[in-house]
Design a binder for these strands. Structure first.
Length: 413
RNA sequence: GCGGCAAUAGUAUAGCGGUAGUAUGGGGGACUGUGGAUCCCCAGGUCUGGGUUCAACUCCCAGUUGCCGCCCCA
């Protein structure tokens, strides 16, 4: 028996339908805000995929065997390919450019809870506006998207921060810029590790006497506690003001830093309230990315929302869509002679809805069994008797009740 | 890249150093054109490769995959 590749998952019909329902729901939410769906190639040149540099990143790309001079890899995220798409058409696109995607990505890494090697994300990118309203809009959309699946404010929380603000505060206590990336990385992990570990990790790169001050900063729960002219403060305040209608979902959390990412301003991450799973979604402002990819500097922001963790949460909250893949009509020929007529009936019924017909040359009992197991709503029975009388029997599979209908009348309705 | 636990029909589970069972699901049949019940028949399994042994599904080692964690999470 062949096994499926490590870290992938198969979607059998019911599972695929669950996926489709969730995807459709996201699609609708995004369209309500005027976002337009895009798709990028699964493969991109290694030049593009590694443009952001970093050895870790490169080690997580599935690199395709080199043919000639061409070197491709599977995209490990889609912000970069979509940004490439933006750059190629940027001068003809009316701004703001608001795109969304529901598609898959690949990362060569160890699978664990909520993390696969091939995975789906719903996400958005906005190119053009530098306004706090743009940040607020993408966060609103993320919240609405989750709510439209039935999740409530008691189920998830949006932790929001601003990297400029965090950096000014950290610099304000005398930490050098050179160690900022590492400090950010540890700060971002704070919720996941113990106080002792946090102290040890930070102690390795900064003066241990400063750890307490950092903790003091991270404990701030309200922007009003921060000195008025601190860079980033006003911007974050405006973003949060614009999100007032959804304030029950939002928490200021200065320890949300989002690793070494390309984020330059607002950052946010969505978690389940219990903090049981890894993050459901994350995003922020990345004003430097377009320039990094070789074009003129353009403000941009976006978020990504993974299906893996989301599914875990929906499962726990019993919010996964209930699926019935049964057809509306199963047409059951009860005799050899009726097969032709049954095919005719099926063909006509298909103009209106989903119809299945016997392909296994089985007796009526087995056919009903099959119709029952696959969730068919009605069975149309046609046999010698019905042929003679020019009728069909319609059996409601839920109630078991049968009614006789004249064939011509039935096909006309 | 590192570590912990696990692996028996499609699924869920027994079992034992000596020829692998049960349930469910799948196919066929009976109940004499009618499903969800009952009964009968059929197909289907010890993850892979080594080792120990007269004999390995069972014990040992390695690999693979799964679950979980670390690293990382653009």
């Amino acid at each position: 028996m062949y096994q499926k590749p490590k870290g992938t998952r198969d979607y059998y019909p019911e599972e695929k339908e669950v996926f489709n329902r969730i995807a459709d729901s996201f699609r609708q939410s995004a369209k309500k805000y005027g976002f337009r769906e895009v798709e990028a190639p699964a493969i991109e040149t290694m030049d593009l995929l590694t443009a952001k540099q970093g050895d870790e990143i490169k080690s997580q790309i599935f690199i395709l065997e080199k043919k000639g001079d061409e070197e491709f890899g599977l995209r490990p995220d889609i912000t970069v390919p979509v940004t490439r798409m933006f750059i190629q058409k940027q001068f003809e696109l009316p701004r703001p450019v608001k795109w969304f995607y529901i598609t898959r990505m690949w990362r060569y890494e160890r699978p664990q809870q909520g993390r696969l090697r091939e995975f789906y994300q719903f996400g958005t990118e906005i190119y053009g506006p530098a306004t706090p309203e743009a940040d607020a809009e993408m966060i609103s959309l993320a919240i609405d998207s989750l709510c439209s699946l039935g999740l409530k404010k008691k189920d998830f929380v949006v932790k929001i921060n601003n990297r400029v603000l965090l950096q000014s505060l950290i610099e304000g206590i005398g930490i050098e810029k050179s160690s900022m990336d590492n400090v950010f990385r540890i700060i971002d992990k704070k919720a996941k590790i113990s106080v002792e570990e946090f102290d040890i990790e930070l102690g390795k790169i900064i003066d241990p006497a400063k750890i307490k001050e950092i903790k003091g900063i991270l404990a701030i729960r309200s922007l009003s506690k921060i000195k008025k002219d601190t860079p980033g403060l006003e911007n974050l305040q405006k973003v949060m003001d614009a999100l007032k209608a959804r304030k029950d979902f939002i928490e200021l959390d200065l320890s949300t830093a989002r690793g070494l990412a390309y984020y330059t301003g607002t950052v946010f991450e969505i978690f389940d309230r219990k903090g049981e799973f890894r993050s459901i979604a994350g995003g922020g402002r990345y004003d430097g990315l377009v320039q990094l990819l070789g074009s003129q500097k353009t403000p941009a922001c976006g978020f990504g929302l993974g299906f893996a963790t989301l599914t875990l949460l929906l499962e726990e909250k019993k919010l996964l869509p209930k699926i019935n893949l049964g057809v509306e009509y199963y047409v059951a020929p009860a005799s050899e002679k009726a097969i032709k007529k049954a095919a005719e009936i099926a063909e006509k019924l298909r103009k209106k809805g989903s119809v299945e017909i016997d392909l296994m040359d089985r007796g009526l009992g087995k056919q009903l069994d099959y119709a029952n197991k696959t969730g068919a709503k009605n069975v149309v029975i046609i046999g010698d008797d019905e042929l003679k009388k020019k009728i069909v029997k319609i059996k409601d599979m839920k109630t078991g009740r049968e009614k006789k209908v004249s064939l011509s009348k039935f096909l006309k309705q």
